[in-house]
Amino acid sequence: MKPSRFDFVRPASLNEAARLLGEAGGVAKAIAGSQSLGPMLNLRIAQPELLVDLTSISELTAVTEHRDHVEIGACVTHADIEDGRIPDPSLGLLSFVAGGIAYRAVRNRGTLGGSLAHADPAADWISAIPLLGAELLTQSSRGARVIAAERSMVSSFVTTLEADELIRAIRIPKMSPRSRWGFCKFNQKVGEFAHAVGGILYDPDNRRFRAVLGAIETAPIIVADATTLFAGPFGPDLDKRLDVNAVLALLDAKAVTDEYTRQLAPVALKRAAKQASAS
């Protein structure tokens, strides 16, 4: 199939993009890497009247390093992160996750901000970015906002972003050198969307021990205090201490009833814990 007719603009500044989206009154869509929206246009699942292309806005590909965080422009690609072309606040977690997204051709074009805004529950960044305790810096014609990443996604393909609101950048706190992480994604074949995602972040200097359960057909579950899942603080052989019932209770709370997902989710978290606590 081919897309239905639309107008196309490629603004040079963020303000211009925000103005265009604001004026369009909901019939416009922002497009960056077009790896998700592109197929949706082709299948006519999305039929916007106007596409606002963000790829010529230089501030969206800017990356700035600060004392305690790194701000990554929303249009930085998965491949930029995978290849280490930007400063890494995450001791390798970001590039590990990036390298597991779809195929290289998709990673060359797909963007961090685009993936977060699209909010596919089986995608990678919607789990990894909240795990890091990141914030989304947004812009609309009404001004700027800061949204905690873990409160951005509401459910499958639904976020708290307004229709005309753009993610400008993602602010990711720097992990201290003693931090540990683990990230486990299951899929049946390379490049496929995840069947299950489990992630662990341990940052002793910043007193953070977080976990994520993703690819559960809705927004991922972020556990801000992972001691509740492991009957205690971070330590060696963390995977052996996983309380599967506690994980299942979290899934119950999100009404995840699928037997397969309920089997895989604790395993993903267990394997992430093993990776994080391996000596």
Binding site: P39, L43, Q188, K189, V190, G191, E192, F193
Partner: peptide
């Protein structure tokens, strides 16, 4: 990998290669 499933009304449930899995080089 490969299966085209249908619902009770006869609707095919895969319409892209993201839903209908083919083995790739790595598999």
């Amino acid at each position: 990998f490969e299966q085209m499933t249908f619902d009770k009304q006869g609707q095919p449930l895969a319409s892209t290669l993201a839903d209908y899995l083919l083995p790739g080089t790595a598999e």
